[in-house]
Amino acid sequence: MIPIKLYLVLSGVLFVIGTSGVLVRKNVLVMLMSVEIMLNAVNLAFVSFARYMMLPKGQVYVFFSITVAAAEVIVGLAIIISIFHKKESMDVDDMNVLKG
């Protein structure tokens, strides 16, 4: 039996990788993908806890989170396309309307 610790560490590492993607990349699409990686990392932690505590409801939460992630991607992509049509650019640094 593999200790849960390993699963959790893997999930943490994936989460940090996702974070680095959000921080480093300028392409909006890749940023969105990085966010998805972070989400998946958390899902992994959920699944492993569910497995190790024998609680199937942990999996239910993952199920919900996948569904919500799908919805999020739909809206996110729609927004990205809208912005692209306005700005002709995929670069987040061009999207600085909120600059004070």
Partner: peptide, 17 residues
């Protein structure tokens, strides 16, 4: 104070981090 609003998304993400 308005200068802390850089308008760069990644700046904000860094602060969240």
């Amino acid at each position: 104070w308005r200068k802390i609003h850089t308008g760069y998304l990644r700046n904000y993400a860094l602060i969240i981090l």
